[in-house]
Computed example of a mutant assay.
Amino acid sequence: MRSFDLAPLYRATVGFDQIAEMMDRALATDVSRESYPPYNIEKTAEDTYRISIAVAGFTEDDLTVELKDHALVVSGRKAEEAEPRTYLHRGIATRAFERRFTLADHVRVTGAATENGMLHIDLKREVPEALKPRQIEIARGLARGAATEPKSVN
């Protein structure tokens, strides 16, 4: 596996340490360890997303979805069975897992539900009004510094 030195990025930028740390984590992650459970991330509209995770064999009580420091953490832990079973073939994995998704600023979780062995987590990006683009009106014939308030672009 290739190794990337991100030290120059840390030296040449200010305020981008969160992005550099995220890249560092992504490059250090063992890809083979991250295959269970399988998942999809889809864009359902302009500002909405859905994460779908295959959780066959898990009930709602076995699953946990929580937010921790801009990270969505989904974990599953199957309760011990009261009566042990004898399997002739066991192909459905119900081992414990923890899956992390780093969320961008202003992305919030709007809901989570299970359906047909899938856990669906809906997300929405809500950009605050102060960060939305706005048009600055150009004043005509006014003295310097006497500009009017900017108008929001909707």
Rank of each mutant, 00 (worst) to 15 (best):
I136E: 13
A45S: 15
H70M: 13
T114I: 06
A93E: 11
A93D: 15
A79V: 11
R77S: 13
A104N: 10
H89Y: 11
K132P: 05
H106A: 08
N116Q: 13
K68T: 12
G145R: 03
D47F: 09
K68S: 14
R99I: 00
D61A: 15
Y87L: 13
V55Y: 00
L131Q: 10
S52C: 01
H70S: 15
G145P: 04
E46V: 11
G57W: 03
Q135A: 10
L67C: 09
H70C: 05
I136R: 06
L123F: 02
Q135E: 14
L119W: 03
T48A: 14
A54E: 14
T114N: 00
A96F: 00
T86V: 14
K43T: 14
I53H: 01
A104Q: 08
M118G: 02
E83Y: 06
F101I: 07
I138Y: 06
I121S: 07
E81N: 12
G141A: 03
E137A: 11
E115C: 02
D61W: 00
L72A: 10
T110R: 08
G57R: 03
T59H: 00
A45W: 03
H120V: 01
S75C: 05
R100S: 08
A96Q: 12
E80S: 13
D122Y: 04
A45E: 12
T86L: 14
Y49R: 09
G111M: 04
A56F: 04
T102W: 03
V55R: 06
I92Q: 13
K78E: 10
G76P: 06
R108I: 12
T114P: 00
A93K: 12
R140L: 12
L123C: 06
G111A: 07
A139W: 01
V109P: 01
H120A: 10
T102L: 05
E137M: 11
L119Y: 05
I53A: 03
I51D: 09
E126L: 11
L72Y: 02
G111R: 07
A71E: 15
D69G: 06
G76Q: 09
A93N: 13
H120R: 09
T64C: 02
E80P: 02
I138D: 12
E81A: 15
F97E: 06
A96N: 13
I138M: 12
A112P: 00
R144E: 15
L131H: 06
R90A: 13
D69N: 12
V109N: 02
P128V: 06
V55G: 07
E126S: 15
L63N: 07
G111T: 07
V73H: 06
A113I: 02
T64G: 01
A130I: 14
V127M: 11
R100E: 13
A71P: 00
L88A: 11
